[in-house]
């Protein structure tokens, strides 16, 4: 069962334990267009043959530009979306294609935090109701203990318990995101998938929430999949990084390896595009030309070849698979940008 792609998906994991959550050749396709005639419409390959392993205790950062499929992948991992193809394993058990009833225990263990804290909280219910509902639905606590648990949750996310009687609109954006986090924690999950949890917040508040994520991870032994487009934030919270482009993972490795010496030309361009306040001396910038190709008709061969400065004929015809490099990370490129090729090639 463990083929090369699945092994590549485990690259540079610190833990030798079996993965907590593992996606094998996972794909998500959307059909649109002429619905009455099957097979006549168009297909969007939002997530295309992704293999990815999440190990206990780690924070896996998922980065990429908008439209690269990182949110769709996140929602497939939590089974909010149906998976078109491939397997999803939680603690070794297949959960990708099981029904709602069998999925219920999994729902408890894997929770999601959303980008827009105001859109994901019911405006007509008090915080206490929002937090208590999952406890009741899953019968986690006896009714008498629910009140105590609510206070405990508010304390965990740094809000005064007196706020339990308030409505979502009475809070600022950062406080609302704290409530979203408290709701996810209510289930005592093992894994939290956070989809752009700080991108709607102001810089000073963003730092507070990033710190809260780190504190909770240490306190509650959580595992995160952290999806964001802000590469600096992802670097701060993640132990491993997966870079996505047009529905596929192009590079996967430990945070320091990927940020320090990006091997995929796309990762390299992405990192060089970030304006930096700390090091103000202009470093060499790679400005990618053109736009993201449409996922309806992705280019043949390497998906990145249309914008890659190093593409040749092989890249235009043969699609590179994610494969491990000598330094432990995995990359989907025929000509990874290792130190050797960097000095010799350019």
């Amino acid at each position: 069962m463990t083929d090369a792609a699945v092994l590549a998906a485990r690259s540079q994991a610190e833990s030798s334990a079996p993965p907590l959550l593992e996606a094998r050749h996972l794909s998500k396709r959307y059909h649109f267009g002429k619905r009455l005639l099957p097979g006549s419409g168009k297909i969007v390959h939002a997530v295309d043959d992704v293999s990815l392993a999440v190990f206990p205790g780690e924070t896996l950062g998922l980065v990429g530009e908008s439209g690269c499929g990182k949110s769709t992948l996140g929602r497939c991992l939590t089974r909010l979306y149906e998976i078109s193809e491939g397997e999803l394993l939680f603690e070794g058990r297949e959960i990708g294609h099981v029904g709602a009833r069998q999925l219920k225990p999994y729902r408890r263990k894997v929770q999601m935090i959303f980008q827009d804290p105001s859109g994901s909280l019911n405006p007509r219910r008090r915080v206490a109701d929002i937090l208590a509902q999952p406890l009741r639905v899953h019968g986690i606590r006896p009714r008498a203990e629910i009140d105590d648990r609510l206070r405990e949750l508010m304390d965990l996310v740094g809000l005064p318990p007196g706020y339990l009687d308030r409505y979502p609109h009475e809070f600022s954006g950062g406080q609302r995101q704290r409530i979203g986090i408290a709701r996810a924690l209510a289930m005592e999950p093992q894994l939290i998938v956070a989809d752009e949890p700080v991108s709607a917040l102001d810089v000073s508040v963003q730092a507070q929430i990033v710190n809260l994520f780190a504190d909770l991870r240490d306190q509650l032994a959580l595992t995160y999949v952290f999806i964001a487009h802000d590469l600096a934030v992802v670097r701060q919270v993640s132990t491993r990084i997966a870079v996505m482009y047009l529905g596929s993972i192009v590079e996967l490795g430990s945070t320091d390896t990927v940020y320090g010496r990006p091997a995929h030309p796309y990762t390299e361009a992405l990192l060089s595009a970030i304006p930096e306040p700390h090091a103000r001396q202009q470093c060499e910038r790679i400005v990618l030309q053109g736009d993201l190709p449409s996922p309806i008709s992705p280019p043949p061969g390497c998906r990145f070849h249309t914008r890659c400065p190093f593409a040749d004929d092989r890249c235009r015809t043969e699609r590179p698979l994610l494969r491990p490099l000598d330094d432990g990370r995995s990359v989907a490129c025929h000509y990874p940008r290792t130190e050797v090729s960097r000095t010799a090639g350019t």
């Binding site: 600022s172 950062g174 406080q175 102001d202 810089v203 000073s204 508040v205 963003q206 730092a207 507070q208 990033v210 710190n211 780190a214 590469l231 600096a232 934030v233 670097r235 701060q236 945070t255 940020y259 990192l271 970030i274 930096e276 306040p277 700390h278 090091a279």
Partner: peptide, 23 residues
């Protein structure tokens, strides 16, 4: 403002220096 931006190079700080409270 300057301290709450996570750095892109060098060692990662244990915690970000955030500004407490909201504007």
């Amino acid at each position: 403002l300057l301290a709450s931006i996570p750095p892109l190079r060098g060692p990662r700080p244990e915690r970000l220096a955030s500004i407490s409270g909201t504007p």
